[in-house]
Amino acid sequence: MKIMQKGWRPVLVLILLLIIWQVLVPLFQVPDWLLPTPYQIGLEAVNSWPNYSGHLFATIRLSILGFFIGSSVGLGVAMILHLVPKLRETFYPLLILSQNIPIIVLAPLLVIWFGFGLLPKLVIIILVCFFPITIAALDGFRQTSGELLHYMKMAGADRRQIFWKLEWPHAMPSIFSGLKIAATYSVMGAVISEWLGAQEGIGVYMTLASSSFRTTQVFVAILLIMCLSMLFFAAIVLLEKRVIRWKTSRGGDANG
């Protein structure tokens, strides 16, 4: 209900833009292969469902698998780096540095190393997923309130208790923001990996369509990728609402 109340403005703008698009294309006589109208795209999306449904499910499977492995690796790395400060000091800068390499540049290398199977695709998704989660979780762990930490220490909590009873739950909101970013990245990573060479997937569908100038299908592919990303994002938001029930609408009081 709230979304309905707050969300009508952007929705209205979106509809307006689509209408302008729909009107301008025939007005300027833009050919279909250059820019189809929203109506044509919608029609194509509905009619060719049997053609692309297989591709869609392949991409969903790949992204979910990659996302799970990537986030687990990301969380694991964050925990190790946090619990062993020396490791964090050593690897944190390298981690940041590694993000200056665009993943897309690595892709051909991964193909040389791992061939065209599932592995290089997963590696790409894991690489894009794990970074936002690791950074978010590390920040969450480190920002643990000093007062609470002091209490835990005075109460005699050992390192393990401090981590699981204090730092871990404290980092939950940060971890979830990392997960949200990673979830949308995983779709992007999956599509990029499919471009490199795959049997099926939205990426494949898109390459086939663009090489034969079926622009409408390219737009359908873009639409699908958007929807998929949004769906993943929404799933994480729902999960977050279930897990973090103690956060109040006014932001919560960190020190109770």
Binding site: E147, L148, A155, G156, A157, K165, W246, N255, G256
Partner: peptide, 25 residues
């Protein structure tokens, strides 16, 4: 550590725990 029990200046309750779970901490 842990030989005495302690109550700090600020209540230092964990915000994600219910009050019952907090008093049991």
């Amino acid at each position: 550590k842990g030989s005495v029990s302690y109550m700090p200046q600020s209540p230092s309750l964990l915000p994600w725990r219910t009050v019952l779970d907090n008093v049991l901490l």
